[in-house]
């Protein structure tokens, strides 16, 4: 640490205690995130099954293999399908809910807020079971659709490719909308309510107010949630494993789920799994960078 001349003794003490806590924390992150990342990178140039690893020949074999692997390309398509459909719907829904909750005419705010945030606290294994049961052949959704006369016979939601993906999206929306809503709600509470009062007196419609006041003022928060959700969706694993198990026939599998299967479910091919992991890492970094740039420009 550099020492400003005026507070030398204080900074010396800072040094001692500060480093005593900084060092183990930094070391832990270094050993658990950065070292494994480098190891994964080195591993991505190795071939072979289990522990019989040898240097890949040609050296980029694992990387070229990805493009001919139909399951992997399917998993990329699926992950981006979730990203493109689910993230915008969720963020818009969260934003709308937050601005309604911020309205002073609404009663029982605390109760609504508590209920909408609740799915975040539930266990994913539990919610996977709830959703599987709801969408089963004899489940609640089919029961309702048949009774209402919309369907004649129950529809096997989990064994059709498109509906399986839609169930994953609904599951994600159910679980994460409330989480993002809380971020917007806290952002909205920093905006003076008088701004809204003034807009109303000037004759602005609620929709105008939403687009001209709420959205621009919440921009930093929207950017934050967009980055968090993009990052989360690119790494999507739990939902794919527990809701659909990637099925039917890998139609709803995500990239992380496929990597897991390659490393732990089938005969392990760690080198190939590591190569795929690296692609995700690069995707996450690039998308986060683009979002930050786009966010900066509009200022």
């Amino acid at each position: 640490m550099s020492k400003p001349s005026s507070k030398m003794s204080l900074d010396k003490k800072h040094n001692m205690t500060g480093w005593a806590f900084l060092t183990p924390a930094a070391l832990l992150i270094f050993l658990m995130s950065f070292v494994p990342m480098i190891q994964a990178f080195l591993l991505s140039f190795k071939m072979g099954k289990g522990n019989n690893l040898s240097t890949a020949d040609p050296i980029f074999a694992n990387y070229t293999r990805m493009f001919t692997d139909t399951v992997f390309t399917q998993s990329i398509k699926n992950t981006f399908f979730y990203l493109i459909i689910q993230v915008p719907i969720m963020l818009v829904l969260a934003l709308i809910l937050a601005s309604i909750l911020n309205n002073r005419q609404l009663r029982f705010k605390g109760l609504f807020r508590t209920m909408i945030f609740l799915p975040c606290a539930t266990s994913l294994v539990a919610y996977a079971i709830i959703f599987r049961t709801l969408f089963a052949n004899d489940g609640l959704v089919n029961l309702a659709l048949v009774n209402l006369g919309i369907l004649k016979t129950p529809y096997a939601f989990l064994t059709h490719a498109t509906s399986a993906k839609i169930i994953i999206i609904i599951g994600l929306l159910w679980r994460w909308t409330g989480y993002n809503m809380v971020f917007y709600l806290s952002g909205l509470q920093n905006i003076e309510y008088s701004v809204y009062e003034a807009a109303k007196i000037d004759g602005a419609s609620p929709i105008q107010t939403f687009f001209k006041i709420t959205v621009p003022l919440l921009k930093p928060t929207i950017l934050l949630t967009a980055i968090m959700s993009t990052n989360g969706t690119l790494q999507l694993f739990d939902e794919s494993v527990n809701l659909t198990d990637g099925g039917p026939a890998n139609a709803s599998i995500t990239m992380s789920h496929y990597i897991y299967n390659m490393s732990f479910k089938y005969v392990p091919t760690f080198g190939y799994a590591a190569a795929m992991s690296f692609l995700i890492l690069i995707l996450v970094a690039v998308l986060a960078f683009i979002q930050m740039k786009v966010g900066d420009k509009r200022d």
Binding site: M32, S33, P36, L43, Q235, S256, F270, I280, V284
Partner: peptide, 19 residues
């Protein structure tokens, strides 16, 4: 470094950590 710790995809670290 700490911020990057937030962005690193955990599942890509599972194999090296497991080993």
């Amino acid at each position: 470094m700490f911020l990057m710790g937030m962005l690193i995809p955990v599942h890509s670290l599972l194999v090296p950590i497991y080993v």
